[in-house]
Design a binder for these strands. Structure first.
Length: 857
RNA sequence: GCCCGUGUGGCGGAAUGGUAGACGCUGCAGACUUAAAAUCUGCUGACCAAUCGGUCGUGGGGGUUCGAGUCCCUCCACGGGCACCA
């Protein structure tokens, strides 16, 4: 009596999923172990900020990582797949202010909630290694690192500009400045100079740049962004003699255009400009005006080029001519030397400025095509340039730099856009900086034995200033050198520091003994890092720098942390708004028969927006908890890796999710149906005798070998969407032969077994359940990946397409090894081919074995 | 302005230079059912054709090739990054 497949009870995920989650947890199924017999694989997703709730974007990120981690484990790797929390940061302090709770409580409570959410998704984490960056052991060790880096000379202190809120009396982060005003007080933000700590990341600028070339496993896009950020320019400096006795040093990447220089421009922040402002009210007025304008970045970018003549002149290095010196708003003090020689004929900014102030324009590069337009930026041949005439730009550059060096006017120089990393934050909820201000000894590092410097818990949040500053008991200490009264540094570290070495912390499974070399040497580098593109520059650059700094200090042997990087796209969804611009939830909207939308309540017209990143404010979010509750984790996991390649933005649709739930159930029904015929683990004991199978089942069996290869290749190349398509295909194929289950239970047992293995990385719970129901030992998550037999992949018969003049006219069924003449004969016999040729003579015949036949007439 | 991406049905998307649209969503139809849901099966790029079949079709234009979504040139649109960086 066979079972009616439509009568099978739906798959009960709400029982099965928690059951296996509990099993994995209790048995530490995914605990990472150093294993000398296996290759290691360190799989890491960017860890989470404990904001309070898991976002659907996290689910996608972590599912992609989990599929790879489980896949690698099945393929015989010793896998490290850890999880943790990026737990310091401003939102905890904001919450403290708003909800009158302690940042620490808020943070750990959030971690508790989010941990449950994450666990309900069945990720294969090694929970033993879980930690939060606000754990005392972690930030305590970070202070140890700080001291080591300080001793190595990688940390220094200097005056730097900050955003200052004059009402709240505190420093603001850039994101707390909205339209030039403090986000809480609304007061116009002032720039203040504060003494702050810096990491000497620029000391590694060259290495960080050149080593990018070796990051083959990184997306080109990210590498380009890092290269641009580091921004290396090669050129030379030139010293100009000024008629007041001063010297002005400029930096140029195009010194070959020196004969086209007609004036000098210096930044309003240049020391010489400031000096001149003291005696010249006109210059002072200009500089003051310039300072006013700098508040809004966008305004600055579109700003007109303005300047003021200083009245000074400089001597041209090679010509008997004097050039005027201007103070110009387009010259930046924080790049190069804050001064440039201007070549209006070959630089757009210089050109605009010269036109505005009526300065001479001298062309020195001839365009190969005779282009007369100015400014001319492209390559060409030098003219009007004395000893450079006739040379190419490249040759002229080398020649002129040699000459400048020879005449001692300047030297070869390299400048970077990259600035040193300011790490001081005037905040409570961060890692305290282990330094002491002693009135006698100055800035003194603490002794290692005095670590960790723990955050005091008895603090009050007024919103004004850093609570650590107000905490007298905590702040006042003795100087570790002279023993006199001294004060702690009350700034804490930028939270980017915390995330710059957490991947090294994960290598240890003991929180008390971090960065053991045997651990880090075994597990590093991270073999696959997965995260959002929004961290393409800062986080990744800081982590690359920090790892190198740790290597310099002797903590680790590795310099480059992330071997392969994958950046997943965002989860997006449609947005709805009223004509007034108010965002609407999808359930506040209904579709009219004519395809337009209106609000359910008032019938007001609704504008359907394009797909946008899910966010609360746009009311287009979905709640992972609700989905797990209604469809189960497997359906959700399956959905977020289906349909769309992982590196592209993912368009959320309720129908798509529904379809994935249907598929999970389809697999379940298949299993229950086959089980009623007695498929089981024992029936997989013998190799399938392919020859003895009926033809249609032979095809299915061989086809499944192709599926195994396709799914393997797809996951290996990070195309989970294709892997899902191949799996669905194979399930469809099995459904098509369900009439033949009887007497072929061994075949169907093997098919089900391998299907479950293939699906397990994506939908682990249902696969675990089927695996155990079939009677296999152990859990599927610990089983080997299925293998395919090459000999079943080669087909013997194919449908060969036949073209006439490159147009498809039919197909012929031929043996793969049939002779060319036989195949042509068959192809030519097709009526459609005959019609297409229609009496014309065949001029040429193309035959590509196994691919195509083409008659050219 | 510069530097990257991307452009294929109603939609998400497949296609080592070789049958464009796999797989899924949507929609339509059939089977099962008293009925509906669920399920199973089939169809679903446009146009012409009763059928066989044909014409067009991968952002536009041009080229290379027996053959181009794929390679080359050029233009356009969208998205992202950087942006007075000397």
């Amino acid at each position: 009596m066979s079972l009616d497949i439509s009568e099978i009870t739906p798959y009960n995920f709400s029982v099965v999923e928690p059951k296996w989650q509990k099993f994995w947890m209790e048995n530490q199924s995914f605990a990472a172990k150093r294993d000398s017999k296996k290759p290691k694989y360190y799989m890491l997703e960017m860890f989470m900020y404990p904001s309070g709730k898991v976002h659907i974007g996290h689910v996608r990120n972590y599912t992609i990582g989990d599929v790879l981690a489980r896949f690698k484990k099945a393929n015989g790797f010793s896998v490290l797949h850890p999880v943790g929390w990026d737990a310091f940061g401003l939102p905890a302090e904001n919450a403290a202010l708003k909800q009158k709770c302690h940042p620490k409580d808020w943070t750990y409570q959030n971690i508790g909630v989010m941990k449950k959410q994450i666990q309900s998704l069945g990720f294969s984490y090694d929970w033993k290694r879980e930690f939060a960056t606000c754990d005392e052991q972690y930030y305590g060790f970070q202070q140890k690192i700080f001291l080591a880096m300080y001793k190595k000379g990688l940390i220094y202190r200097k005056e730097s500009e900050v955003n200052w809120d004059p009402v709240d009396n505190c420093v603001l982060a850039n994101e707390q400045v909205i339209d030039g005003r403090g986000w809480r007080s609304g007061a116009p933000v002032e720039k203040r100079m504060l003494s702050q700590w810096f990491f000497k990341i620029t000391a590694f600028a060259d290495e960080l740049l050149s080593e990018i070339d070796k990051l083959d496993g990184w997306p080109e896009k990210v590498k380009t962004m890092q290269r641009n950020w580091i921004g290396k320019s090669e050129g030379c400096s030139i010293h100009f003699k000024c008629n007041n006795g001063e010297e002005i040093v400029v930096f140029s990447t195009r010194p070959e255009t020196i004969f086209g220089a007609t004036y000098l421009a210096i930044s309003p922040d240049h020391p010489l400009a400031k000096k001149l402002a003291e005696v010249n009210p006109q210059i002072k007025a200009f500089i003051d005006e310039f300072k006013k304008g700098t508040v809004a970045q966008e305004f600055l970018d579109k700003q007109e080029k303005l300047g003021v003549d200083t009245g000074l002149t400089v001597q041209h290095p090679f010509l008997e001519k004097k050039m005027p010196v201007y103070i110009a708003n387009f010259v930046l003090m924080n790049y190069g030397t804050g001064a440039v020689f201007a070549t209006p004929a070959h630089d757009e900014r210089d050109y605009d400025f010269a036109v505005k102030y009526n300065l001479p324009i001298v062309r020195v590069v001839k365009a190969p095509d005779g282009d007369e337009a100015l400014p001319y930026i492209e390559d060409g041949v030098l003219m009007n340039s004395d000893f450079l005439n006739g040379l190419s730009v490249k040759d002229a550059r080398r020649t002129v730099i040699d000459k400048i060096c020879e005449k001692n006017l300047g030297k070869r120089e390299i400048f970077f856009k990259l600035r040193d990393w300011g790490i001081s934050r005037q905040r409570y909820w961060g890692c305290p900086i282990p330094m002491v201000h002693c009135p006698k000894c100055g800035m003194v590092p603490l002794n290692e034995k005095d670590l960790p410097v723990l955050l005091p818990s008895d603090v009050t949040f007024s919103g004004a200033g850093n609570p650590l500053d107000a905490h007298e008991k905590w702040k006042n200490v003795k100087c570790p050198v002279c023993g006199h009264d001294a004060e702690r540094e009350t700034d804490t570290l930028d939270t980017f520091v915390d995330s710059s070495w957490y991947f090294l912390r994960f290598c240890s499974d003991d929180a008390k003994d971090l960065l053991k070399k045997e651990d880090t040497s075994y597990w590093m580098q991270v073999d696959q890092y997965v995260g959002g593109i929004e961290h393409a520059i800062l986080h990744l650059l800081y982590a690359r720098f920090f790892t190198r700094a740790l290597a310099e200090c002797g903590f680790v042997n590795v310099r480059e942390p992330f071997k392969n990087l994958f950046t997943q796209g965002m989860v997006c969804s449609v947005t709805y708004r009223t004509e007034g611009g108010d965002w609407l939830f999808p359930n506040e909207v209904k579709k009219n028969p004519d395809g337009t939308f209106e609000t359910i309540k008032t019938g007001e017209k609704v504008i359907v927006g394009r797909l946008e990143k899910m966010s609360k404010s746009k009311k287009n979010v979905v709640d992972p908890d609700m989905i797990v509750k209604s469809y189960g984790a497997d359906a959700l996991r399956l959905f977020v890796v289906s349909d769309t390649p992982p590196d592209r933005d993912f368009p959320w649709s309720d129908e798509g999710l529904e379809g994935c739930w249907r598929f999970i159930n389809r697999v379940w029904r298949l299993f229950v149906y086959l089980k009623s015929f007695g498929i089981s683990a024992e029936k997989c004991a013998h190799e399938i005798n392919v020859e003895s199978l009926p033809g249609n089942l032979q095809k299915i069996y061989k086809g499944f070998h192709q599926t195994i290869k396709d799914v393997t290749d797809a996951i290996e190349s990070r195309m989970m969407n294709k892997a899902v398509a191949f799996i669905r295909d194979s399930v469809n194929a099995i459904y098509s032969v369900l009439d033949d289950v009887k007497d072929n239970e061994e075949l169907f047992s093997v098919l089900m077994r391998d299907l479950v293995k293939l699906m397990a990385p994506i939908a682990p719970h249902i696969c675990e359940e089927i695996w155990s129901e079939l009677g296999f030992n152990g859990i599927v998550s610990e089983h080997a990946w299925p293998t395919y037999n090459e000999k079943y992949l080669c087909v013997t018969e194919i449908n060969l397409p036949v073209q006439v003049n490159g147009k498809l006219r039919g197909t012929v069924n031929v043996g793969v090894n049939d002779g060319e003449d036989i195949i042509f004969e068959k192809a030519l016999a097709l009526p459609n081919v005959q019609n297409a040729i229609a009496g014309k003579s065949v001029r040429k015949r193309i035959f590509i074995k196994g691919k195509i036949i083409n008659f050219v007439v």
